[in-house]
Structure formats: C-alpha cells, structure tokens
Amino acid sequence: MERYHYFRQFHDISSADYRLLIENLQSRSFKKGESIVVPGQIQRELYFVKSGVQMAHFDTDDKTYVIDFSHFPALCAIAESFSFQTPSKYFITCLTDSEMEYLSYEHLQKLLDQSREIERLFRRMIEAMLADMVNLHINLRAMTIEERYLTFCRKSPQLLHLVPHKYIASYLGIDPTNFSKLFNQVKI
C-alpha cells in the first residue's frame, strides 16, 4: 500500500488502475554488487524497488561517476535505454541485496494503451524525474559543497548509512576527502 501512496504523489491513480498495474508485476532478486544493466545492453524491464539500494553510474579511467541512486519505493531504470529500447551507456549496480518487481517494456506499453490513468501516472513520474535532473545540474553549479551535502542529507538521509560515501561524493560532485570532512563536521 505504501507504493500506492508513492504513486499518488504524482497522479491520483484509482485503486482499480493501481491493481491493474501491480497484478502484472513479477519479482526478481539481485545480490550486492550485481549489475542489473550494463553498457551496451538494452533495459527491457522497468523495475520497482521493493528493498535495497541501486546506483546508476559509468566508469572511465578508473573513476566511477554516479548519476543517481534508487531505493524503495522508486523506479529503477536507465530512462533512455528503457524508454527508447536502445543500448544503455551506463550501469545499474546493486549496492545492497535488492528485491525488485518489474514489468517488461512490451507489457507496460499494453498497460499504457489500456489505461489513461496509468499513462498519466508514468508521464508525471517522468516529468518529476526530469525536474530532479535539472535541479541536480543547478545545484552542482550554483551551490557550495556544504549546501549540496545538506540538500542531499535532507532529501535522502538513509543513504548516508547504506551507500559508500565515495559514491555519494561522486553524485554530489565533491572530492571524497571533502565529503568525509563534511560528514564528520556538519551536523544535520
């Protein structure tokens, strides 16, 4: 039921349409360190996180660049790979053991055709994701490292204890040493 309330933040989906959506979900488990998507692979399933934390990232020259984190009750996807059924440029890696529910791309398309409410829900979720990406870009350019750290702590405090700090530092565009200083000195 918690996922139902999560969806309703984006669109006031009826309980009947919610049931239509969730009755088609299948389950899958992933182990810590396991990749859900790798570069060159087309993401064919849209994942709904039940438990665990996942990270979207790419690696170059022995450095990991973190794009995003996902955790319950959010979706877990490489948006452009899933939406356009094109090869991914990024990884999604499980940072903890993870339980997911998923729909195939084809099945989701049928549901979107079947229900205007489900289609509207996903459109609004994508709009929110786009707004979050724009805000992250603004924050990376306009905020000090302390402001970025505090904003992250307010939005996702639970991740401070579940995600290696080097990955949070990468996501926030902060040197890991400076992140460690912030973590030890700035109280929230």
Rank of each mutant, 00 (worst) to 15 (best):
L172K: 01
K32V: 10
S83E: 11
D61Y: 03
K187D: 08
E45K: 14
S156M: 05
L136H: 14
E2Q: 13
E23Q: 15
F48L: 15
G173K: 06
E34G: 07
R116E: 13
Y149R: 06
H11D: 09
K181P: 01
F30K: 10
V49N: 02
K89T: 10
A56I: 08
P164Y: 05
K166H: 07
L20V: 00
M143G: 00
M129L: 14
Y102N: 07
F84K: 15
E80N: 14
R124P: 00
S14N: 05
L159S: 07
V134E: 15
L112E: 06
E106Y: 02
S83P: 01
L130G: 08
I78G: 01
L111I: 10
R44T: 13
L20Y: 01
L25Q: 04
N184Q: 14
F152N: 02
F10D: 11
L130Q: 12
H11E: 11
M125F: 04
R148P: 04
Q185E: 13
P73T: 06
E119S: 14
S104H: 09
C76W: 01
E147Q: 15
F48H: 12
E117G: 07
G40Q: 09
N178F: 00
L25A: 00
E23Y: 00
F179W: 05
T86H: 05
I92Y: 02
E80L: 08
A128H: 11
F82R: 10
L21T: 09
S51P: 03
N184E: 09
L160W: 02
Y47D: 01
E146C: 00
L121I: 05
S35L: 07
M125T: 04
R8Y: 03
L150C: 08
F69E: 05
S51I: 08
P164C: 09
R28T: 11
R141W: 01
L111S: 09
M100K: 02
F7G: 07
R154T: 07
D132F: 02
T93Q: 10
F48C: 10
M1N: 11
F91T: 04
R116H: 06
E34N: 07
E23G: 02
D175F: 00
